[in-house]
Design a protein around this nucleic acid. Structure first.
Length: 259
DNA sequence: ATGACAATCAGAGATTGA
């Protein structure tokens, strides 16, 4: 079972690029972030025609997450628990049924800039809520994958120029600590089990020739419960699609599970 | 210190992103 996470930065703007990547990479499941569309505006028929089930949790203009799956999905839930007043669409869960069932969460973690400030407070509060939900999912002792745009540079080696991120919400000590509190519940960060060391990125800014200079950061992650980590056979980043026409500023990160 | 660049909504330019 191949599971990918991809911040597409707008479904309308990314339709052609997304369809092309799906046709080549052929993930069984694609967890999408920043669809920037309401549910009714998501072009679900295009993906259904490609053989995907489509589940969305959208919002007008901003945010929005979706799951595309060639395998059946069950028990779909929308929204991160813990704050009934939170109207931002950043979390969707579903159980995908392969040779065994895997619980998936697709997430778009708040950016948090500028820090300090209300947006940063929201980011840290959101991460505390995510920690609570992650603990509950771990307690099921089933394969669980938490995948998405974490907006977290976990270590300096995850940035080409770590010094410019030092005071940024993506890399501040409090951000990294909040991320580690989630990981340290007992998750395995999939990419680092296969690819240690610097120079691996999942985002390159549109500005100032960041792609051409390989001035990237690695902020898209897949966290695996112990039962999911047991099933991991491969992990990678589809870096090359960043060089195509009209790309997202993020690229897909994927895992292969024996499930 | 600012803006670069892109997407959205709207129909200009503000807002958001990372």
């Amino acid at each position: 079972m191949k599971i990918a996470t991809f911040n597409i930065n707008g479904i309308k703007a990314r339709l052609e690029a997304l369809v092309a990547w799906l046709s080549e990479a052929r993930p069984d499941v694609a967890l999408l972030q920043e669809i920037k569309s309401v549910d009714q505006g998501f072009p679900r028929e295009i993906f259904e025609d490609l053989g995907y089930h489509v589940e969305t949790h959208g919002q007008k203009s901003f945010n929005g997450v979706a799951i595309l799956s060639r395998l059946p999905l069950e028990d779909v839930t929308r929204g991160l628990p813990g704050d009934a007043t939170d109207e931002q669409a950043r979390w969707i869960e579903a159980t995908v049924i392969g040779t065994r069932a895997v619980r998936l969460a697709g997430l778009y973690l708040p950016n948090g800039n500028p820090a300090p400030g209300p947006k940063y407070d929201y980011k840290l509060a959101w991460m505390a809520r995510m920690q609570t939900r992650a603990r509950a999912l771990l307690a099921t002792e089933e394969p669980v994958v938490l995948a998405g745009d974490y907006n977290i540079i976990a270590q300096d080696e995850d940035a080409a120029r770590p010094e410019v991120w030092r005071d940024d919400a993506l890399a501040l000590p409090a951000s990294r600590e909040a991320y580690r509190r989630i990981v340290n519940l007992g998750f395995t960060e999939a990419f680092r089990t296969r690819h240690p060391g610097p120079g691996h990125y999942s985002f390159w800014d549109y500005q100032a020739g960041a792609w051409e200079k390989n001035n990237g950061i690695r902020i898209d992650h897949l966290l695996l419960s112990p039962q999911a980590a047991d099933l991991l056979t491969d992990c990678g980043i589809d870096k090359e699609i960043r060089a195509r026409e009209k790309p997202s500023d993020h690229v897909p990160v994927w895992i292969e599970l024996d499930a």
